[in-house]
């Protein structure tokens, strides 16, 4: 019972910290800075939020950003997983592709923005491309190392049970065995991709979007609305991370218990 009670008080401690931070922020903003352009107060932000809910385009912004994110993450999955599998399973493919990938991988995703515009124009696909660059490597690398780390005993047991071709070995042995690591890669990729979103929407690919509106309100000098969009970006990112973690825990805990995750 003591343990349960302690857990509850821990939770309240966190809530208390948030309240104190808000109070501190409000005090600094309204007593020290006294300039909503340099530092809007929590009250300003809430007011701006309510105005945006009534007359703004919050839902459309979220929708468009999710579209960009979906294009980026979706294509990263479609390209990263097969390449990661091929490199992890066939030594020749690994030796062939590794140098190229190692040269491209350290280039920051945002450095691709000029080519995103040149190749895709000011379209949703262009923003999706920048997010794709950010998301594809964590997925590829994790798939690759997941395949590299498959215990030999599983492959041999599979062979003895009639699973002898590369195709069936990959499908029935290697892929399920590597899946926890692939899922962890997707979770990292979704985090990186979401971080690329603001920059991807910076150069005017769409009239809506959380990142687009962030820059839009910055240009209008409405910093309270900028904070609203900042917080929304953070919360949606947190939600995705929580969703992936929940899915991974639920799906893999039953067979990975006892292993170091």
């Amino acid at each position: 019972m003591k343990l349960g009670g302690r857990k509850i008080s821990d939770k309240w401690l966190g809530v208390l910290a948030i309240l104190l931070a808000l109070l501190f922020w409000q005090a600094i903003a309204s007593l020290v800075v006294r300039n909503t352009f340099i530092l809007p107060s929590p009250v300003d932000v809430v007011t701006a939020f309510l105005t945006l809910v009534r007359g703004g385009t919050l839902l459309r912004d979220i929708g468009v950003s999710l579209l960009h994110f979906g294009i980026g993450l979706g294509s990263a999955l479609l390209i990263g997983i097969p390449i990661g599998i091929a490199m992890g399973w066939f030594r020749g493919v690994d030796a062939f592709l590794d140098p190229v990938i190692e040269i491209i991988r350290p280039i920051p995703p945002l450095a691709w923005i000029p080519f995103a515009i040149v190749w895709f124009g000011l379209t949703n696909a262009s923003a999706g491309f920048v997010i794709f660059i950010g998301a594809v490597f964590p997925i590829l690398i994790n798939t690759y190392s997941g395949f590299r780390g498959i215990p030999r005993i599983f492959v041999e047991a599979g062979k003895m049970l009639g699973c002898t071709r590369n195709g069936t070995l990959i499908r029935y042995i290697a892929f399920p065995s590597a899946l926890p690591q692939i899922a962890a890669g997707i979770r990292i990729a979704s985090g990186v991709g979401w971080m690329c979103l603001v920059a991807a929407e910076l150069f005017g690919v769409s009239k809506f979007g959380l990142g687009q509106k962030l820059w839009f309100f910055y240009n209008l000098h409405q910093m309270d609305s900028v904070v609203v969009y900042m917080l929304l970006l953070g919360m949606i990112g947190l939600f995705f991370d929580w969703l992936f973690r929940y899915y991974i825990d639920r799906h893999f805990l039953k067979w990975r218990s006892g292993e170091v995750a």
């Binding site: 599983f154 041999e156 047991a157 042995i173 067979w255 990975r256």
Partner: peptide
């Protein structure tokens, strides 16, 4: 065959 190490597929 039955191996020395545990070879059941954990998934």
């Amino acid at each position: 065959i039955v191996f020395q190490e545990y070879s059941l597929f954990p998934w």
